[in-house]
Each structure stands twice: as C-alpha cells, then as structure tokens.
Amino acid sequence: MLSIALKMLLGDRGKYIGIITGIALASILMIQQPGILISIFARTYSFITDVALPDIWVMDPMVRFIDDSQPMLDTQLYRVRGVKGVEWAVPLYKGNTRVRMSNGQLVTSNMLGLDDATLIGGPAVILEGRLADLRLPDSVIIDEAGARGRLAKPPATPDGRPIPLKVGDMLEINDKRAVVVGIARATATFGSQPIIYTTYTRAKTYAFSERKMLSYILVKIKPDETVPAVAERISRDTGMAARTAREFKRMTLNYVRKNTSILTNFGFVVVIGFIVGAAVTGQIFYNFTLDNLRYFAVFKAMGASDRMLQGMIFVQALLVGFIGFGFGAGITSLVAAITRGGTGLTMTLNWQLLLGSAIAVAVIVLLAALISVRKVMQLEPAVVFK
C-alpha cells in the first residue's frame, strides 16, 4: 500500500512539484534569516573571538559591551600585574579614529593599540607584511576588508573601481602620518568599520588627547591557578571588573539583543515563513488529497483499515517534506558558502539551526497531513459507486 501511495503522489507532477517548492521556500526563510542573525550577533563580539590568548579581560566596571570601553589610568595595569596568580598582563587600546583619504573624505575606523613589547591582541592571519613591522616608525596594519573597502584609494578614472591599499601606502590619522606595513584578515565587526592595528604607545599619539587611554587589560593566569579565583582577586584588589572571554561575549550579546530590534525583525520573518509555508503546503496537499478521494474510497471498499490509509497520507507528507527541506537547506548552504569570508552580509549555519528548521518543516507537513486525514476518515466507501 505504501508503494501505491508513492505512485499516487508522483503521478500528479504539478501538485508534487508545488508542494516541494512551497516547503523549500519556507525552509530557505527559516534557515537563512536565523543564519544571518547568528552571523550578525557573532560580529558584535568578533574582536573578543579574534583575541583568544588571554584568560581574563580587565575593564572598568561600567563597561556594558566590547565597544563601550571606559578608559582607565595606565597605573591600573601595574596593579593588575601585582595580583597573585597573574602570569602576565598587557595593555590594549580600543577606540574610534578618523582617517583622512586623499580626496579629503573622513572615514571613521576602529583603532587597536597593542602592547609594544609583545603585540598581543594582533591579527592572527597576516596577508601582507609582518606583525613585527608594527615596531617601525608610524606603522599601521589594516584589515583586508578595510583595505579593499572604505579605506581604498579613490579610482583613477571617474567610472573606475577603488584601488585597494597595499604595503607602503600612506594614511593620515587625525592629522598624523601613518604608513601601511601590513594587510591582515580579521573577523568583520558589527558596524563593518575598517580596523587599524598599531602599538599602544602610537595609538595614544594618534588618538585625541585624553587623560585616560587604557581601554582593556589582557591577563594570562599562571598554570597552577584557576580563572575564577584570579578574576575574583583582580576585582577585589583593583576595583576593576575581570571577566572571561565567554562572559564578555555573553554580556555584549545581551546588550545588543536588549537594546536593538534585530531579534524581533528577524524573528518576524521566520514566523511569516513558517505561516506561509504551512498555508501553501496545506492547501496544495489538501487539494491533492481531494483529487485522490476516489482512490481512497476504493481502498476502503476493499477493506483497507483507517490506520493503513493514515499511514499512506503520512508517508506522502513526510516524503515531500524531506525532499523540500533538502532542496531548501542545500540552496541556503550553497549561498552561505559563496558569501563566506566576504565583507557584506553572511550566514552562519550550525546543526542546531538545521535541526530546528527540520522540526519546523516536519510540523508543517504533519499539519497538512492531519487536515487531509480528517477528510479521508469521513469518506464513505459507497462514494466510489456513484
């Protein structure tokens, strides 16, 4: 009987393709939108992800997220270094700066000042140049997206493309000279602003004059210590907040989620995709069942049980659901692979997202099957003789 159910389904090509198309479109919406949302959320704490070496981030207690750095006095660095259990602690400057292009345009960028001696916090992937070249006079390293995008040199012709920055080019940062000594690959930020790496001392000269310039202190604990114990000592002895990378990420993510409407907007699209998918699939599948009522009546007249007829309908529904979800997930994964590593909108897919979308598709097809089952259960076998 199951083979007959599949022949019934595949025999009506129009409705078969229509059901699969509806499920595929619903799957694309339910996978793509959360995938983009996950990528956007990951960008909010991308810098924390890139700086993976330290165990603890020390900051002002009023900091709410990564870009909300509250400057501290440089003397706090020496206080942290004196805490028991700290193997090393280095300074980090993080702030916004203005870069003047050759055409006079000002571009706001993220500037990171790394410890002069160790350069901890620098980019892990250097495409051109060397990280050690930051110790040269007036040197900076630019992230790849910024070098090809907002910080690219104006085109040579009116209709030409911008010319990417390369090693040896000059920049003007807050009316001061900067020499590009390297191009690095970094995770895109939430605002997609260019990232400029330099030393901590030079960052203080590029930035506007302020009494406090220390944004964060990166701490590595000794091998025989535990992170919670050292973090508690740092907070007690210095009055600063000491958080692990995971805690800092969670704090940043919670701030963005609570203070923006991103989650609501993307969630609304996912709900619409589920409703539209359920409506389209349910309508087409119900019409398919109506067109085949005479066959189900024959099966009833021949003695087929209600459970057998229900099994036939659920097999048909699960088959189109499986195929439709496969097409939708495949198309979305292909788009995610193509856009990966780009500077624009990207998608992050994981097994939890795919599993959740698969469950949603299963709910859609089962609802459609239940509507059709109800019609078949009310069918009288005598209808076949009319």
Score class of each variant (00 low, 15 high):
200 Y>W: 12
196 I>P: 03
184 A>G: 05
193 Q>G: 01
102 S>T: 15
118 T>V: 07
102 S>G: 06
99 V>H: 09
93 Y>N: 08
179 V>D: 02
141 I>K: 10
101 M>F: 04
122 G>V: 09
101 M>A: 14
123 P>D: 11
110 N>H: 10
120 I>H: 05
149 G>E: 08
102 S>Y: 05
107 V>P: 02
208 F>D: 12
134 L>D: 02
149 G>C: 07
122 G>L: 07
189 T>Q: 13
85 G>R: 11
185 R>G: 13
115 D>T: 04
92 L>R: 14
146 G>D: 03
203 A>I: 03
107 V>M: 06
204 K>R: 15
149 G>M: 05
153 K>P: 00
141 I>N: 09
194 P>A: 06
199 T>N: 04
190 F>I: 13
136 L>I: 00
124 A>E: 13
171 L>F: 10
164 P>V: 08
173 I>P: 05
109 S>M: 10
103 N>R: 07
154 P>W: 03
173 I>N: 05
155 P>V: 08
156 A>G: 01
206 Y>G: 01
195 I>M: 13
117 A>C: 00
138 D>Q: 12
168 G>I: 04
161 R>I: 03
186 A>Q: 12
107 V>Q: 10
105 Q>Y: 01
148 R>T: 02
198 T>A: 08
136 L>N: 12
197 Y>H: 07
191 G>H: 12
140 V>R: 10
206 Y>V: 00
175 D>R: 15
161 R>S: 14
161 R>L: 14
135 R>F: 00
110 N>P: 00
148 R>A: 03
193 Q>T: 08
183 I>T: 09
114 L>I: 09
147 A>P: 04
95 G>K: 09
123 P>W: 13
112 L>R: 12
143 D>A: 03
115 D>G: 05
187 T>L: 15
107 V>L: 04
142 I>S: 01
124 A>W: 12
177 R>E: 10
132 A>R: 11
160 G>V: 07
132 A>L: 11
139 S>A: 15
180 V>N: 07
174 N>T: 07
159 D>L: 15
114 L>P: 04
143 D>H: 02
124 A>C: 00
163 I>Q: 14
185 R>I: 00
145 A>K: 12
153 K>F: 05
193 Q>W: 08
157 T>A: 13
175 D>V: 01
